[in-house]
Amino acid sequence: MNHTAPEFTWQITDSFGLTFNLSTVMMLIISAAIVFLIAFVATRKLALKPTGMQNFMEWIMDFVKGIIQSNMDWKTGGRFHILGITLIMFIAVSNLLGLPFAIAIDGDLWWKSPTADPTVTMTLAAMILVLTHYYGIKMRGTSHYTGTFFSPMKFMFPLKLIEEFANTLTLGLRLYGNIYAGEVLLGLIATLGASSVLGFVGAIIPGMAWQGFSIFIGFIQAFIFTMLTMVYMAHKVSADH
């Protein structure tokens, strides 16, 4: 269980370097490739009367559309449709990647969910929050945007400021915590299963149960992340707030 990360540091100057977790980089690219392939293959034979995979893709689109519409009107929220679909699919696939197995070479953990890395989830969360502020200013104007920090009362300003950071932190860490904890427990069960014959017998039932539950959690977390994205977005861009 004491895996290390395969790290690589690109030293640009003597004092400044970019550190890459090669495992995270690889898994991110694999996730993106899988999502792209699913979406690409599903939308090759588009027809007015949808069949097979097109139905599935349209269901996802309608599902995300439902999420957006439950937070803001479609005229405002339509522009976030593509962001929402990409988010939900990318996070769902990322969450599921670490479930079937984990690969560790020389103590370095290579195969895992990219979302089991807090850097990835916090980056996504920060990106979402930056986007909400960007669209808040773009669509409602700077004065209205600034005003939201002082409403309903002026003394709320510190709380509002904390809220923004808390939102970012909880959005990223909720996803990371769920997936990382799932993988840690899966790893523990796998270790138990590999220890002895008796251990294998004892581990197979909880192993299957936890994997099933992790699949459920993977989808739920993807849904929650997308939902919260739209909630935060609606707070900033909707006129009725």
Partner: peptide, 16 residues
């Protein structure tokens, strides 16, 4: 890891 942050952003935005 600053590198991971960049890779995550680039991967996600490129995918989108």
């Amino acid at each position: 890891n600053l590198g991971d942050i960049l890779v995550t952003l680039v991967t996600f935005l490129l995918l989108m």
